[in-house]
Every structure is written in C-alpha cells, then in structure tokens.
Design a protein around this nucleic acid. Sequence first.
DNA 1: TTTTACATTTTTGAATGCAAAATCTGGGAT
DNA 2: ATCCCAGATTTTGCATTCAAAAATGTAAAA
Lengths: 221, 221
Amino acid sequence: MLHEEVVGRIRAILLDGEIPPGARIPERELCERLEISRTPLREALKVLAAEGLVQLLPHRGSRAAKLTDKDMRDLFEVCQGLEALAGELACERITDAEIDEIAAAHAAMVLHYRDGDLIQYYRGNRAIHEAIVTAAGNPVLAGLYTSVTARIRRARYVTPMTPQRWALAVKEHDAILNALQRRDGAGLSHILRAHLRHKREEVLQAGFAETEGTDLTLRIA
Amino acid sequence: MLHEEVVGRIRAILLDGEIPPGARIPERELCERLEISRTPLREALKVLAAEGLVQLLPHRGSRAAKLTDKDMRDLFEVCQGLEALAGELACERITDAEIDEIAAAHAAMVLHYRDGDLIQYYRGNRAIHEAIVTAAGNPVLAGLYTSVTARIRRARYVTPMTPQRWALAVKEHDAILNALQRRDGAGLSHILRAHLRHKREEVLQAGFAETEGTDLTLRIA
DNA sequence: TTTTACATTTTTGAATGCAAAATCTGGGAT
DNA sequence: ATCCCAGATTTTGCATTCAAAAATGTAAAA
C-alpha cells in the first residue's frame, strides 16, 4: 500500500467519525487493520497532524482532533475566503461546458430538495461547490480548500436544517448558478460568502463543538 | 530533538535554498547533520511533502520541490485571497495597540526605504504583513498563510526592484496603514490585493520559474 | 566506438527491536 | 473508604535491520 493511500484511508476513518474526535488512535489496532507496520502508520499520522485532523501528544500518542466552536468559526471563515476567491477566479476561467455541468448538477440538487432527500441534496451541494473550486483552475487553492473543508465536512454536511433555512440555501444556490452563468465574479464571490456565513450560523447554532460523544447521525428537523 | 523541530530545521534548509529546488535531498547526510536516524527524518519529509516543499518520488527518494511559473502564479493568487481576508478580519478585530505597533513598523520600514536598504526593508515589510494576519485572530488562516508564503518567500523577498516599483510599494504601504487605522476592511482588502498583484507581476516578470540553477542572490536594480 | 545485457552496489521503504516514558495496578497509610 | 506511591505493564519514539527496487558499473557484442 502506497503512502498516500495510507493517509487517505486513515483520513476517511477520521472523517467518518469511526474514531470520534478526542478519542485515542489505537496504533496497534490500525496497523493490523491496514496490514502495515507502525512505521508507515506513524508517518501518515504526522501528515494528518500537520493537516489538523490529528493531534499529537508527545509520549502520549495521537488523538482524533477535537474542534471547538472557535476552531469551527475559524475554519468557516477561511473557507469563505477560499470559496470567494474560487468564485472570482472561476468566473474568469470557467468554460461553457463546465457551466453546463454545474447547471445540471444544480437542477439535480433542486430535485433532491423537492424530494426532501437531505443526504442526496448535500451530496449534490458539495459537488457544486467543488466544481466551482475546480473551475478556478488553481490547484493550490483546490488543495487548501479540500483540507479545510475536510475538517468541517461533518459539521457542514451533517447539520439538521429547518425548512426555512433549506429554502434559503436553495435560493442562494439559484443565485450562485446565475452569477456563474453571467460570469459575475464579484457577485458570485459575494453570494458564496453569504451562503457560507448562513451555513456557519446554522452549524454553530446547532451547538457543534465536537466532543467525544458528538452524535453525528443525520437528523432532519 | 522534537518532531516539530526536525520539520522546522529541514524547512529552513529548504527555504534558505541550501538544498536548491529540484535537487535530491541526501537522506544519509541530513541524518548525520541533524543527528537523527532515518525514521524521524523521513517522517518530517512526508510532512513537508504534504506542505508542498518536498516532492516524493516513489522508490526514487525526495527532492526539493521546484516551482514553475504556474505554481508561482497560483500561490500568489491564493496568497492574495488570504491576505485580503486577513485584512478584512483584522479591521474588525485589531486593537489600538496593535495598530500602533504596525504604524511603528511601517515608519521603520520607510526609513529603510529612504536608506535604500532593501534587505531591512523586506524584513520590515514581511513583519507588517504578518502582523496584519496575526491581527485577524484566526489561527487557521495564519497557518495557511505561513505555509503559502513560505513557498513563495524566496521569490517574494529576493526579487530585484526598480526604484519606480519600490516607490509604488511604499506608497501602497502608506495606504495599507491608513486603511488599517480607519479600520476600513473593504479598502484594506482591496489595497492588499493590488499590492500583491503588483508584487506577483514583478516576480513573474523577473522570470522566476525555479530551476536547479536559480540564482537567489539579492540584487538591487 | 557505441550499445546492450548482466552483475554489483546503493538507496529506498517497511518491519522489528530496544530504551525511555507514560499508564495501570495493587497494597499500605491515613 | 480514600488517597498515595512503588512495581509491573503497556505504549511511545527512535535506531537498526532487512528485503526490494533503482542506480551504477562492467564487459561483451554490434
């Protein structure tokens, strides 16, 4: 198994919440499960620690990082900045074909909204945001975006929504698509910020400071 | 020696250009120099690879990452976004005392400009940009900023300047301080973007694609 | 002289072993 | 019963070792 694959698999385990925030990461156990020895596992943990997903305590092992409200706020703030930038750049560089793809994804997402299928809605939502970042044509930006969103993913995409908020989010997405189609960078940037600000408020209101026992089951309000 | 220290020391070696971009990283040699064994060294290299400073080639060792013009453009673009965000947040959160400190640093920097001391000027310049990012009060943002700027540092702070460009940069810094003092987030964000855009143009015009032989001696035009 | 095939050496990536640190356990004092 | 401390156990962090892959060198053939 390649180094990057090890990192990826552990990242997935953490993001799935299989090892909940704050819990110790059982080295020996993970080694057996991934069928690798401690050396490559520990290399991966150091990388994930640099990413902020793992917390290393000298001589006391590693734990799945726990996010405080402040961390969450900070991450959302940065995420806003990155998406705003991505929106501007995307408007300069996006091709017609890419816009069409996003429009299609948008339409599909709206259908999921109509169906009240929050999981599929979130999935489509995420794909759209990622497509915009990709369209920005800046791999450095894309990399940072991936790493920042990974850390808030569980909060962002597993927060219950009221019908009002959900309706607002869909309306914002209409505006996002519209700005993209008009290639209105400033406008898109502005809408994306507002969209994320609202999302952040939802998440923080939901009291999302991660603790050992944070329940991450998807609930629909 | 602690893990973070190992990472830091190797990072410094790379940023100093002691191992030039594209050059192989001599594992054995670094081990002897840092007086550590290969295991912790390799852990550090993987972390630095995730940061983008090191390139890992499976079964062929690691090299100091080489930056293409495109990489440089992408990094500057992201850096602009991060500084713009930092500027906005700083205006919301900065204390009077912090503003005074930045004003003092600014005054000192202007003196170095008058003296024609580019090295000291750059040093002061960097301190100001970092102080703004710190004043934003967002450690996640600060972390990304550090990592992005690290990668372009050598280009950003080791590019020759024409008297015209230098004068413009100083003028922009006046505007930056002014916006900060007025706590004009939008204005500061705008100026910072322009400032970095100009810097990027300088750097790219200087033909900064990093190659094995890139001469990083500080030249004053 | 250049090229190709092969053997040797070097380097890489990962497993194992070992010393130091931390955690756990149980018995005795308060 | 609770608290505390000494010994045992586990876990961590690093050095070393080992197998596999790549690089290098050599010699024969074109």
